[in-house]
Computed example of a mutant assay.
Amino acid sequence: MPGLLRGVARTAIIAGTASAVNGRVQRRQAEKFAGRDAQIYADRQAAYDQQTGYQQQAAPAAQPAQPVQAAPPSDPIERLKSLAELKDKGVLTEEEFAAQKARILAE
């Protein structure tokens, strides 16, 4: 019996040591890969931020600033004249002009 007990004890010690070493190796690898993954994420985020930053800077430059227009005159005749000027300049299409003219005349 003492030989059997000694064998069981030796197996238990070896198994316990193996489990402890395995757990330590897994923790170390997890920390290593977590650091690597965090670095990859940071690099990708920086590249994304840089790319979107360029797009945000380019977008306002691509679109010219619209001048602030004054409130339309309250007189319907003046409003129709200013509407006709916009149509003559090409700002309004014929359909838009007709729709706005109908709206002014309906008021």
Rank of each mutant, 00 (worst) to 15 (best):
M1T: 06
P2I: 11
P2W: 11
L4Y: 02
L5D: 13
L5A: 08
G7H: 03
G7A: 12
V8L: 05
V8Q: 13
V8C: 01
A9N: 11
R10A: 07
R10E: 14
R10D: 14
I13L: 09
I14W: 01
I14H: 04
I14Q: 09
I14D: 11
T17D: 11
A18I: 07
A20S: 13
V21F: 08
N22C: 05
Q26S: 05
Q29L: 07
E31G: 03
F33P: 00
A34F: 03
G35V: 02
Q39I: 07
I40L: 04
I40C: 02
I40M: 03
Y41N: 07
D43N: 06
R44Y: 15
R44I: 03
R44N: 13
A46S: 08
A46N: 05
A46I: 03
Y48V: 03
Y48I: 06
Y48L: 10
Q50A: 13
Q51D: 07
T52E: 14
Q55N: 12
Q56R: 13
Q57K: 03
Q57V: 04
A58C: 05
A58Q: 14
A59V: 01
A61N: 15
A61E: 15
Q63T: 12
P64N: 04
P64K: 08
P64A: 10
Q66W: 06
Q69K: 10
Q69L: 12
Q69A: 09
Q69T: 13
A70L: 11
A70G: 06
P72I: 08
P72Q: 15
P73A: 15
S74W: 05
S74M: 13
D75T: 03
I77Q: 15
R79H: 12
L80T: 04
K81V: 07
S82K: 05
L83P: 07
L83T: 06
A84S: 14
A84I: 01
L86V: 00
K87F: 09
G90C: 06
G90P: 00
G90N: 06
G90H: 02
V91G: 02
V91N: 01
L92Y: 11
E94Y: 05
E94D: 14
E95I: 07
E95K: 01
E96L: 00
E96D: 02
F97V: 00
F97Q: 04
A99T: 02
K101R: 14
I104S: 04
L105I: 05
L105K: 11
E107W: 00
